[in-house]
Write a protein that binds this DNA or RNA. Structure first.
Lengths: 232, 232
DNA sequence: AAGTGGTCTAGACCACCCG
DNA sequence: GGGTGGTCTAGACCACTTT
C-alpha cells in the first residue's frame, strides 16, 4: 500500500481497464478523472504517460485516451538468471565451476574502466533450468569493490550478495547478442550436441551513477533459450 | 528549430554537458536552471526526466543532478533494415525474391488478428550490406490494408511506402530472437557455409493504436550480424 | 464550436543528503 | 539547518479532432 497519488491512481485505472473496458474503448477525459479521483490533471497525465509507455493505453490528441490491446511479451529487463527462469516457468539452479582472482587484461579492463593489471574476481557458473544445463556464465568483478567475496560466495544469487553485503545495486546494462555454435568442450558441459546453435551474451552492468560494475559473458543453449523483447 | 521549450532546453543542456562538464560533475540545480533559462521548474524536470532515461544524467535526491558516463550503444529501436545498416556504417541493398498473395494460415493469422483464410501479401527479400548477403526477410501484411501494393512495390523501403502511400506508420514491435544454424538452401542464398550460425527474428509490428500491421520472419547471418541493446 | 490531449506556469510541501 | 530532488496543485493557453 503506497501513499503516492499517482501510484494509487495507476492501480485504480488498471482495475477500471480490466473490469469495465475493452480494447480501443475510450477512457474518461483527463479532466474527468482528475475531478472524480480528487487529484490534479498533472498527476493524471503523469500516470497516463507511464501507462502509455507500457502500451496499456494510447492517446490521440483532440480525440481522447483509449485502452490498448493486451500484450503478452515484456520488455527485456535487467533481471538475474534466476528471475528470468522463474518468469519462464522453470526452476533455476546453479553450480560454481570456478572462482579465482586474475588480472583484468585488456578487454575486461576496458569494459570495467580498470588497468589491465588490476585484479578482478572471475566466477564461472553452470546455470540450470529444471535441473538440466541452460547456460555457462562468466562474471568479472573489480576485486577492490568486493573484498572477501571470493572466500564467502559459493551459491545463491550473486546479485543479492552484491546488494545486501556490499550495498552495490546494478541498475542497467549494455548487452551484445551474438549467434554461434557450441565447441565440443562447451557442448559437453551443456549436455548438448557439438556444433548446435547457441547465444553468446556479452554484458557490462552499471550502477545508477553509470559506473561499470560487472562484465559478463554467457553462453546459452540455442535450442532451449530465446529472447523476447519489445522495440519502439 | 523547434519552438517547444523543453526541446530547446534539452539542446542547451546537452551543449552545456558537452562543452563545460565531464562525467559525474554536478549540474546546476533545477531551480537555478529554471531561473537562468526562463522556464518553470516543471519544464526543467520534464527535460531532466528524458535525459535520465537516456543515461545522459543521473539524479540523487538531496544531492543533485550529475553528468552520466558517455555511452556508445543505443537502445534497440524499431528501425528499418536500411536505417539499421546505415547506423552500422554499411550500405544497404535489397532484392525482391518473391511477391504473392496467400492465405494467412494459423500462425500468421493469429499474429495479425485475421482468420486463417484471409488473404495476406507475402514478400520475400534478400537484404544485402555493402553488396553481400546479410539477411533473408519475409514480410506478411493484411491484403485489405494495402490494396495495389503487390502490383506496385518492387524496390525501395517497404516502410516508407506503407507510410507515404497508405498512411500507416509502424510504431512498435514485439520480437523473438532465436539462435539457429543455416539449412543448405538458406546458406546458398546467403552465400555462407551450410550449418553456420544464424539469428531467426520473428516480429509483429503495430501502429500507435496497438493494431498488428506486419508479421515478419528474418534470418540473419550469425557471422556478420549482432544485436546491441540496453536493458534496465 | 466544443471538447480533447499537449505544453507551460508559479508555488507549495515532503524526503533525503551533507556539495 | 539549509539545500537538493520528488510530489502535487490550480489554472492558463495552444493544437488538434470531431464523442
Amino acid at each position: 500500500m503506497t501513499e503516492l497519488k499517482h501510484e494509487r491512481l495507476r492501480e485504480q485505472l488498471l482495475a477500471m481497464i480490466a473490469q469495465d473496458l475493452t480494447s480501443h474503448e475510450r477512457l474518461p477525459t483527463e479532466r474527468e478523472i482528475a475531478a472524480s479521483f480528487g487529484v490534479s490533471r498533472v498527476t493524471v497525465r503523469r500516470t497516463f504517460q507511464q501507462l502509455e509507455v507500457e502500451r496499456r493505453i494510447y492517446r490521440i490528441q483532440g480525440a481522447g485516451t483509449f485502452v490498448g490491446e493486451p500484450v503478452i511479451a515484456k520488455t527485456l529487463e535487467l533481471t538475474s538468471f534466476s528471475q528470468d527462469m522463474r518468469q519462464r516457468g522453470l526452476q533455476p539452479g546453479s553450480r560454481l565451476l570456478l572462482s579465482e582472482v586474475i588480472s583484468a587484461g585488456d578487454e575486461i579492463g576496458y569494459a570495467l574502466g580498470l588497468r589491465p593489471a588490476d585484479p578482478v574476481i572471475h566466477m564461472e557458473r553452470l546455470r540450470t533450468a529444471d535441473g538440466s544445463p541452460m547456460c555457462i556464465d562468466n562474471s568479472y568483478l573489480p576485486s577492490s569493490l568486493f573484498p572477501g567475496l571470493i572466500e564467502n560466495f559459493r551459491e545463491g544469487s550473486l546479485y543479492e550478495v552484491m546488494a545486501d553485503t556490499y550495498g552495490i545495486r546494478l541498475d542497467w546494462a549494455d548487452q551484445i547478442l551474438r549467434s554461434s555454435v557450441l565447441a565440443e568442450s562447451e557442448a559437453e558441459l551443456l549436455d548438448a550436441p557439438a556444433f548446435s546453435s547457441a547465444f553468446i551474451v556479452e554484458r557490462t552492468s552499471h550502477d545508477q551513477r553509470g559506473r561499470p560494475i560487472e562484465r559478463g559473458v554467457s553462453l546459452y543453449r540455442g535450442d532451449r533459450y530465446f529472447f523476447q523483447l519489445r522495440t519502439g
